[in-house]
Design a protein around this nucleic acid. Structure first.
Length: 512
RNA sequence: GCUCCGUUCGUCUAGUGGUUAGGACGCCAGAUUUUCAUUCUGGUAGCAGGGGUUCGACUCCCCUACGGAGUGCCA
């Protein structure tokens, strides 16, 4: 380890990991690798009521798919484990008590109903900032207002309590964010956040600060939604006496919905028909299914490249980078401040580029996979030729099948619009003669030879090629568009070509 | 409501006082082609508004507008 840079990605296992989470993980990873630091993953599962089975496995699989490697995690282990907050539960209370002893926190016994009543009262009194804070806490039931004896009695009697942070009344909190610069907040606007819940678990704020400290995290790179609570975290570091070990912060811009405004949500994905999750996910509780980048045919390298540029740019005109290259040029300072709209067209463009970059054999394999799945018969050699023929047209692996199907399956019907426009007596005549010529020909049926034969027929009948090509296409494929026809003839072979041409002549009728 | 953050082509962005405001996606057009797609070439389109500061503002400051996030015993 050349230096001590340590970053963490700290997801909560409450469902499928959002694509924004993948980006956060990616930025952490790029920064860690770039600086020779360490990438840590910590599971933040302090809310027992929100735990969703399978979510943790999903996180692991999604990061693995994206190529984001973890140096320390629940799965890889590491010197600062355990890496699940649920497995570190015992430690948090002691830190909360340390804060109480130092006068930075206190016990509170208010019931949910009493809290609600307080908010309503404050609201009715038109208090600018109705919350449990330095102003209102003296009206509440806590160790600041109750006698020491009563507090002790309540606790020993088993009455539920929380521990709240005692927000200073008048203090200016300054925090430096790598992306945003200095951010100043006055403590008078902040509330007394709960640190320990009545169920004995810590809240995010406490657990996060304690674990980041214990795990020696040097840079906290997380979403912008955490910015408002960052001042609290700074105060926590100070109150715990860890100011010297406070990590640097970088709050990432949010990923917004493509149209209109607001955070990208599951609803947008459904409405617009594109995924916003890395992997497909079926919610174990609702059985609801959401689409994943992987299942939709997005390649990991395309997804990573796309995600990297959602809020960051290298400052040059280049935008095609592999993970290795991203690591080379990434820097926190070049992350933008403004929210970023999710542009699926750009993702498709990346996908097309990376799909084409895959070796031909791999593309053939993708096509073969789909043929197998659909139980379509084929010869291995032909699959390779077809893949080569259609790779330029594909954005997703599934397009390989979409455009490749005509090579493997004889047309069962013919596009009527194309037939009406292009199929006529002249074309039918030429195609009949062409079929015969192909059948009678003794030479190997290459694309070139096929073209020669067609040209000979055309010359004999004094017809220009443009007048019949669409009809030939219709005869061979049943549709009006597709890849090069002569190459197709070479690929499907003499017998199939003749068969298809004659079938078309037989089935298609000339409209008078 | 309050706090914080933000605002360059439709979208992602470059730009750190003097530029014809650059690139990419998308879109449009042309070329190529047996069609569609690809490819190539070209085009379209932007500094939210108003005040300052300055010889000079997209760049610095202030205000307004608009947008976003947070405001839970959720993370």
């Amino acid at each position: 380890m050349e230096n001590n840079i340590r970053v963490r990605f700290a997801p909560s296992p409450t469902g499928a990991l959002h694509i924004g989470g993948v980006r956060t993980a990616l930025y952490n990873y790029l920064f860690a690798r770039k600086t020779g630091g360490t990438m840590v993953l910590r599971i933040e599962d302090t809310d027992q009521t929100r735990y969703v089975p399978g979510a943790e496995a999903y996180i692991q699989e999604a990061l693995d798919w994206a190529g984001i490697q973890l140096d320390e995690s629940p799965w890889t282990g590491g010197p600062y484990g355990p890496y699940r907050q649920s497995e570190r539960k015992e430690q948090y209370l002691a830190y909360a008590q340390q804060l109480i002893e130092a006068g930075h926190a206190y016990y509170a016994f208010d019931t949910p109903e009493e809290l609600e009543a307080m908010r309503e009262r404050l609201w009715a009194a038109r208090v600018a900032n109705p919350q449990y804070d330095s102003l209102s806490r003296m009206q509440m039931k806590n160790s600041l207002t109750l006698s020491q004896e009563e507090v002790a009695a309540r606790i020993s009697s088993g009455e539920p309590y929380v521990i709240r942070f005692k927000m200073p009344r008048k203090e200016e909190v300054r925090l430096h964010d790598i992306i945003r610069g200095w951010v100043m907040v006055h403590t008078a606007t902040l509330d007394d956040k709960v640190l320990m819940k009545s169920d004995g678990w810590p809240t995010y704020h406490l657990a996060n600060v304690v674990d980041d400290y214990l795990m020696k995290i040097t840079h906290v790179i997380r979403g912008e939604e955490w910015l408002p609570s960052a001042p609290l975290h700074v105060l926590l570091y100070k109150a715990l006496g860890w100011e010297a070990h406070m990590p640097k912060f970088a709050h990432l811009p949010l990923i917004l919905k493509p149209d209109g405004n607001g955070k990208l949500s599951k609803r947008d994905a459904e409405k617009q028909g594109f995924p916003i999750f890395p992997l497909e996910w079926i919610d174990p509780l609702s059985n609801e299914k959401v689409a994943g980048f992987r299942e939709e045919g997005y390649l990991p390298e395309a997804t990573v490249n796309f995600l990297a540029f959602l809020g960051w740019s290298p400052g040059t005109n280049d935008e095609l980078f592999t993970m290795e290259e991203l690591i080379e040029i990434f820097s926190l300072e070049r992350i933008g401040k403004a929210g970023t709209k999710f542009d699926i067209d750009k993702a498709k463009w990346y996908n097309q580029y990376y799909l084409r970059k895959r070796p031909d054999a791999e593309l053939a394999g993708m096509l073969q996979e789909q043929l197998d799945k659909l139980e379509v018969g084929y010869e291995a050699e032909m699959v390779h030729k077809v893949a080569l023929e259609i790779k330029e047209r594909a954005v997703f692996p599934k397009d390989l099948w979409k455009d490749g199907a005509v090579y493997f399956i004889r047309p069962a019907r013919y596009d009527q619009d194309v037939a009406a426009k292009k199929w006529n007596a002249e074309a039918q005549n030429i195609i009949s003669q062409f079929a015969q010529a192909v059948e009678d020909d003794a030479q190997a049926l290459t694309a070139e030879r096929a073209k020669d034969l067609l040209q000979q027929v055309l010359d004999k009948n004094n017809v220009k090629i443009g007048r019949v090509m669409q009809a030939v296409r219709l005869a061979l494929t049943g549709v009006g568009s597709g890849p090069d026809l002569m190459n197709m003839i070479e690929i499907i072979g003499r017998e199939e070509t003749v068969l298809r041409l004659r079938q078309a002549v037989h089935h298609l009728h000339v409209t008078p």
